[in-house]
Each structure stands twice: as structure tokens, then as C-alpha cells.
């Protein structure tokens, strides 16, 4: 598997990474290097192996349905770039 410049640009956009046009060539080459290492893994026969979702052989612990959190909104708002009347404010989102 390998990527072209266009695909790398798309992925950068999805991840909100700002890659200059002059750097795309290098980014694509580096990513393709990593992908070729992944291809090595593909050579292993995994027909009998069960898919793994997590490296730990444990299952999810569950929490009792109880309200435990206090209202810390003032502390959280104090470190936000902009707030108003209890809301976090962000640049206008146009739909």
C-alpha cells in the first residue's frame, strides 16, 4: 500500500494538520516508508489468530450509575479562551 500527495493532503486536512505544499513530497515519502514496514506484517499468516482490540487480556470494568462529579464549571471556564454567560464561545460555525 502506498499513498500519493493528494491522499496525504486529504488526510492532513482531516487531521487538521497544516502541511505546506513544499513539504508534501517529503511527508508522502516518509509515510510510505512507514506503510512499507506495515506491509511486512502482512506477510505473516494470521489465519488462525483472533482479532485483537486491546493488548491487555482483560475486559472492561463497569461503574455504578451514580452522579459523582461536582459542578466545576467556574474553574473550567476560567481557563477557556473565551466565555459568555456560562457558554464557551468559539468562532462562528457556519453550516
Amino acid at each position: 500500500m502506498s499513498l500519493d500527495n493528494k491522499k496525504v493532503k486529504e488526510i492532513a486536512h482531516l487531521a487538521r494538520l497544516n502541511i505546506e505544499d513544499s513539504d508534501i513530497e517529503q511527508a508522502t515519502a516518509e509515510l510510505n516508508n512507514i506503510l512499507s514496514l506495515m506491509d511486512k506484517l502482512g506477510e505473516i499468516d494470521t489465519g488462525d489468530a483472533e482479532p485483537m482490540a486491546h493488548p491487555l487480556k482483560m475486559s472492561q470494568r463497569l461503574r455504578e450509575d451514580k452522579v459523582l462529579e461536582d459542578d466545576l464549571s467556574e474553574e473550567f471556564q476560567a481557563i477557556a479562551p473565551k466565555t459568555g454567560k456560562g457558554h464557551f464561545l468559539v468562532p462562528t460555525v457556519i453550516e
Partner: peptide, 13 residues
């Protein structure tokens, strides 16, 4: 997201 509270911002709850 609340779009009609401010002219220049979107308010988030």
C-alpha cells in the same frame, strides 16, 4: 452548538 445567541461567536454548552 447555539448559533443565534451571538453575532460573532457560536456558543457551546
Amino acid at each position: 452548538s447555539i448559533h443565534d445567541l451571538y453575532d460573532d461567536y457560536t456558543a457551546i454548552d
